Simulated assay, not measured.
Amino acid sequence: MARPPCTATLLHEDARVRVQRFDFEPGAETGWHTHGHDYVIVAVTHCRMLLEEPGGATRIAEFAPGDAYARPTGVEHNVINDGDAPMSFVETELK
């Protein structure tokens, strides 16, 4: 069964950064993607993410509201809301 897509809302973009808010209903996903830039995520809500990774690996990542983390260019994954409530985070890509 296909998962519903999350919603991405562009908040700001200029020559240096792109800032988007991602909102997920329970079970929603980003779809497979590869990050073309270094990026920083800040959780808006509690986030329980199921991360599907290349080669079939999966893992759970949990973040409290306000938590932040950074990842480098080239990360490939599908992010799924594995919780029972909507989740949101803001992603800032460093161009």
Rank of each mutant, 00 (worst) to 15 (best):
M1W: 12
A2P: 14
P4V: 10
P5V: 08
T7I: 13
A8Y: 11
A8G: 09
T9I: 08
E13T: 14
E13M: 13
A15N: 15
V17N: 01
V17F: 08
R18H: 03
R18Y: 03
V19M: 10
Q20S: 15
Q20I: 09
Q20G: 07
F22L: 14
D23V: 11
A28N: 02
E29A: 15
T30M: 08
G31Q: 12
W32P: 05
W32N: 03
H35R: 07
D38V: 11
D38H: 12
Y39E: 09
V40D: 13
V42F: 10
A43M: 05
T45R: 12
C47W: 07
R48C: 06
L50F: 00
L51V: 13
L51N: 12
E52P: 00
E53F: 05
E53I: 10
E53L: 15
T58W: 01
R59I: 04
E62A: 01
E62K: 01
F63N: 08
P65R: 07
G66Q: 06
D67V: 01
A70L: 03
R71Q: 04
P72R: 09
P72V: 03
T73V: 14
V75W: 07
V75R: 09
H77V: 04
V79Q: 07
V79L: 07
I80D: 02
D82P: 10
G83E: 06
G83A: 10
G83D: 05
D84Y: 13
A85T: 11
A85E: 15
A85H: 11
P86F: 01
P86C: 00
S88V: 00
E91I: 11
L94A: 08
K95E: 10
